[in-house]
C-alpha cells in the first residue's frame, strides 16, 4: 500500500516538474540550445579552425563533449534550484509537506525532474553538434553512466542550494560564482596538459574536470584523468550530497518552522 503511495507521489512530482519546464520552454530549453549553437559556431568553427588539433582531434570535436556536459550540469542544477525555491517562495511546497509523502520521495522526484531537463538539453545539444561535426561514441557505457550520474549530482546540488536560499539572489550566486568558473576551468575548451605544471595540479581539484574528461573519454576515447576513478568519485559525491539533502529536508531546513 505504502509502495503504491510512494510511486504515485513520485511520478506526480516528476510529471509536475516536466510539465513546468516544458510549459516555459522559451526560458528553459531554447536558451541553452542557442548558447551552445553560438559556442559551436564561434569557438568550434571560426576560432577552432585556427587552433588546429588537440589530443589528435580537431578543436570542434574536442570541445563538443565538454559543451554537452556543460549544458547537462547547468540545466540539471538550475531546474531544481529554481523550481524548488519557487515552491518555497509561493508556499506551494506546503502542498507536499502536509501530504503523506516522505522526504526521500520528495527529493528523488525533484532530482529526477532536474535530470530529465539536463538530459533533454544534453540531447538537444548533441543534435546541434551533428550540424557542425561528426559524433562518434567510443564507450557507450561510460558515456551514458557519467552523463546520468553528473545530472543526478548537480540536481541534488540545486536542491541543497534551494533549501538554503532565502531570496532569488541566493539561487543565482552558486551558478554564477561557482558553477560557471569551475565549468570553464574544467577542461571544456582545453586539455589541462596545455597548462603549466602548477595549474595542472590545481585543475585536478576541480570536480567538473573529472566529469568533462570522463564524458570526453566516452565519446572520443581520450581523457586527462582516470575515468573509472572519476566515476567512483561521482558516485561517492552523490551518496554524500543525497544524504545531506535528505537530512536537511527531514530537519525542515528553510521549509518548516
Amino acid at each position: 500500500m505504502r509502495v503504491r503511495l510512494y510511486w504515485v507521489a513520485f511520478s506526480t512530482i516528476v510529471t509536475k516538474e516536466v510539465r513546468r519546464f516544458t510549459r516555459i520552454w522559451v526560458q528553459t530549453l531554447l536558451p541553452p540550445a542557442i548558447t551552445m549553437a553560438l559556442y559551436f559556431v564561434i569557438f568550434g568553427n571560426l576560432i577552432g579552425s585556427r587552433i588546429g588539433e588537440m589530443d589528435g582531434y580537431n578543436y570542434m570535436q574536442f570541445i563538443m563533449p565538454g559543451l554537452i556536459m556543460m549544458s547537462v550540469i547547468t540545466n540539471s542544477y538550475t531546474n531544481v534550484v529554481s523550481s524548488f525555491f519557487s515552491s518555497k517562495f509561493q508556499r506551494s511546497i506546503e502542498e507536499i509537506l502536509v501530504s503523506p509523502v516522505p522526504s526521500w520521495v520528495i527529493l528523488s522526484g525533484y532530482v529526477l525532474g532536474g535530470v530529465t531537463r539536463g538530459l533533454m538539453v544534453g540531447f538537444m545539444v548533441t543534435l546541434l553538434a551533428l550540424f557542425f561535426t561528426e559524433v562518434t561514441v567510443h564507450n557507450i557505457f561510460v558515456t551514458m553512466t557519467v552523463v546520468v550520474l553528473t545530472a543526478i549530482l548537480f540536481a541534488i546540488g540545486g536542491f541543497i542550494n534551494a533549501l538554503f536560499a532565502r531570496k532569488f539572489d541566493d539561487i543565482a550566486i552558486v551558478p554564477t560564482f561557482v558553477l560557471t568558473p569551475l565549468t570553464y576551468l574544467g577542461g571544456v575548451f582545453y586539455s589541462i596538459h596545455l597548462l603549466p605544471e602548477f595549474w595542472q595540479g590545481l585543475s585536478l581539484l576541480n570536480p567538473i574536470l573529472y566529469m568533462v574528461n570522463t564524458f570526453r573519454y566516452g565519446i572520443l576515447g581520450i581523457s586527462d584523468i582516470n575515468h573509472w576513478a572519476a566515476l567512483g568519485a561521482i558516485c561517492l559525491f552523490i551518496a554524500v550530497f543525497f544524504s545531506l539533502a535528505l537530512w536537511l529536508l527531514e530537519r525542515g531546513r528553510g521549509i518548516r518552522q
Binding site: 504515485v8 507521489a9 512530482i13 509536475k16 519557487s86 508556499r91 506551494s92 502542498e95 503523506p100 509523502v101
Partner: peptide, 23 residues
C-alpha cells in the same frame, strides 16, 4: 494564505494534490 503555484491550471492543482495522497 494561498499556497499553490499560480501558473498551474486549476484542474492540475487538484489532481497534483491527489497524486501526493497516492491517487
Amino acid at each position: 494564505e494561498f499556497n499553490f503555484s499560480v501558473f498551474e491550471k486549476v484542474e492540475d492543482i487538484v489532481l497534483t494534490s491527489a497524486g501526493y495522497q497516492g491517487m
